[in-house]
């Protein structure tokens, strides 16, 4: 079992703990940490799982540059069903381009992303979105948080990952969130996603053919159920 963590030193918003949690869940796996200047392990090998978390916008551009030479290989691995999880704004890497409206709300910029999925991202640096999220996918309730300067547009619904119950989808007014194709999962949700969503983590572990026993499972399940009640409580603000 091999897990490749992409650009871990750049992670933000607690996504460091998605990687740490995977290490707890898969104690016998080999973890390969690929830095921004390294050749990715997946370029010549087939890892069982690839993970990347949220980064700054500057590091997102660096990540796109680092992955661009391996775009075709990523497409191949997605098609072959390699498990991949991308959280936070790392999802934007897979779109066609990123359009930025800088903080002064006048200067704009645009750079190409990998173009693996048909969408583009618009970043508005003076209008950061922050909110909570409740959704459902694979019969599992998802809870999480979002902090992002951008939203994605034009993604066909049939490629989406989570149906929105409360909160904002890929952009305001849309009732779906994230990307799912084969075993590729990507979502803007931070949290960290794997720690806050034990049922999804169990699903992912099973899908990888691993034990789905979580560390201190009774405690995390209790915490998850309490959180879920709050997220479902209509008297509480969300989104």
């Amino acid at each position: 079992m091999t897990v490749e963590i992409l650009f871990e030193k750049a992670f933000l918003f607690g996504d460091e703990w998605n990687a740490n949690y995977l290490r707890r869940l898969l104690p016998d796996a080999e973890f390969i940490c690929t830095d921004l200047l390294d050749k990715p392990y997946f370029a010549e090998h087939k890892p069982d799982l690839i993970y990347m978390g949220a980064t700054s916008e500057r590091n997102q551009q660096r990540a796109i540059a680092a992955l661009r030479p391996y775009k075709d290989r990523l497409v191949q691995l997605i098609d072959e069903g390699v498990h991949m999880l991308f959280t936070g704004n790392s999802i934007d890497i897979f779109g066609e381009y990123v359009h930025i409206v800088e903080f002064d709300e006048v200067t704009t910029n645009r750079y190409d992303a990998l173009g693996i999925f048909p969408f583009h991202t618009k970043l508005e640096m003076a209008d950061r979105y922050y909110g909570s999220f409740l959704g459902k996918a694979q019969g599992i309730d998802f809870v999480g948080f979002k902090t992002q300067f951008g939203h994605m547009y034009d993604l066909p619904e049939d490629l989406s990952f989570i149906t929105v119950k409360r909160g904002v989808g890929i952009h305001p007014g849309v009732s779906y969130e994230g990307i799912h194709k084969n075993n590729f999962y990507a979502t803007y949700l931070i949290g960290p996603l794997l720690v806050l969503n034990p049922l999804f983590t169990k699903f992912l572990m099973k899908s990888l053919g691993q034990s789905d026993k979580l560390p201190f499972e009774d405690v995390t399940m209790k915490a998850y159920r309490l959180r879920l009640e709050e997220f479902k409580d209509k008297s509480r603000h969300i989104g």
Binding site: G14, S132, F145
Partner: peptide, 30 residues
Amino acid sequence: VASENLTWYYEADLERLADDSIKHIYISGY
């Protein structure tokens, strides 16, 4: 009014609190 963001729990160095000099931790709240 909402459900509190937990991200900060996972960015803070709470491993320090696993020190043996800390005999017990009482945690209150939602």
